[in-house]
């Protein structure tokens, strides 16, 4: 994995601090070209991995990168699925079974019909989950997706319920069908790591909040530091600035001196911020001990 990954929260009006700022961002990025312009700025700064949700507008970004593959020969996507709002709304409107059926592919593929129909009837998580993953992955066809993530809304929900097998199903399917590494977003990294080890997902990639002030780090900063020092996994740090609560230099210096951190994901909308953050990560990653 690259040391620096580019995130997409800023494109979709996700801002953990201010609704006003989130709306201003939504306005700026209502045109897909505006997103691509920012991705270009990141690319120029040397950031070649886009870690994105499966929001339908990412489909348009994918179209662009397919069309201009020659311009970005080494570009990679790390999809994070699913974009949960559409499922939440569908469950409210159609109930759970209805919602699952709505998102299963209906293009007449024998495979989908057989896997989907019998899986829903037999209540088998494998068939249902793998079909939903395939549906989400459609937009990335023909693009490089070496790591595929499960969003924290789903990871942490399943973790809480104790549906541990689902993680195994996700990991296996991502490996066999997409030849990709499975990754997991979580706000509960220590607990998730225990469960992933238990179900045999070895040396897992876990993307979690890691920041100096402990924002959304369940278990606390001390436990996270202990786990980073002692356990075997591949951590990716997000929310390192805690939505702007920590000054960039201080925030990045802190995260870079932690053991094992493989990558840092951040989102930004201006050339200046992108360059500054990338430079800080390069600077502090270069002086790491491990």
């Amino acid at each position: 994995m690259d040391k620096v990954l580019f995130g997409d929260n800023q494109f979709f009006g996700v801002n953990h601090m201010s609704e006003e700022k989130a709306r201003a961002q939504s306005m700026r990025f209502r045109d897909t070209q505006a997103m691509i312009d920012v991705l270009d700025m990141a690319y120029e700064a040397g950031i070649k991995t886009f870690m994105c949700t499966t929001h339908e507008r990412i489909g348009e970004v994918c179209d662009y990168f397919r069309k201009h593959a020659d311009r970005y020969p080494d570009y990679r996507f790390y999809p994070g699925m699913p974009y949960a709002h559409k499922y939440a709304n569908a469950v409210t409107d159609h109930g759970i079974v209805g919602a699952i059926k709505r998102f299963l592919p209906n293009d007449g593929l024998m495979d989908a019909v057989v896997r989907g129909g019998s899986a829903v009837a037999k209540k088998e998580i494998d068939g249902i989950a793998t079909l939903l993953i395939d549906a989400e992955m459609k937009m990335f066809e023909g693009l490089s997706t070496p790591v595929i993530f499960l969003q924290n809304v789903v990871t942490d929900f399943l973790l809480g319920l104790g549906m541990k097998d689902a993680f195994r199903v996700f990991a296996d399917h991502v490996k066999t069908r997409y030849n990709a590494e499975p990754g997991f977003f979580s706000m509960n990294m220590p607990r998730l790591l225990d469960v992933l080890e238990e179900v045999g997902v070895e040396n897992p990639i876990i993307c979690s909040n890691i920041n100096k002030i402990g924002f959304r780090m369940c278990g606390g900063v001390d436990l996270y530091q202990q786990i980073l020092a002692q356990r075997q996994f591949r951590p990716v740090a997000m929310s390192v600035l805690a939505s702007g609560a920590i000054p960039p230099r201080e925030a990045i210096e802190y995260v870079c001196q932690l053991p094992k951190i493989e990558s840092i994901v951040f989102g930004a909308s201006s050339r200046g911020n992108i360059r500054q953050t990338k430079a800080l990560i390069d600077e502090f990653m270069a002086v790491r001990q491990d």
């Binding site: 601090m17 809304v153 942490d156 509960n188 924002f215 805690a242």
Partner: peptide, 17 residues
């Protein structure tokens, strides 16, 4: 004052503190 500074830590996070 932002959520980040006003929110006490919780034992587990699923959909909001």
């Amino acid at each position: 004052r932002y959520t980040t500074e006003l929110t006490p830590e919780v034992w587990a996070y699923v959909r909001g503190e």
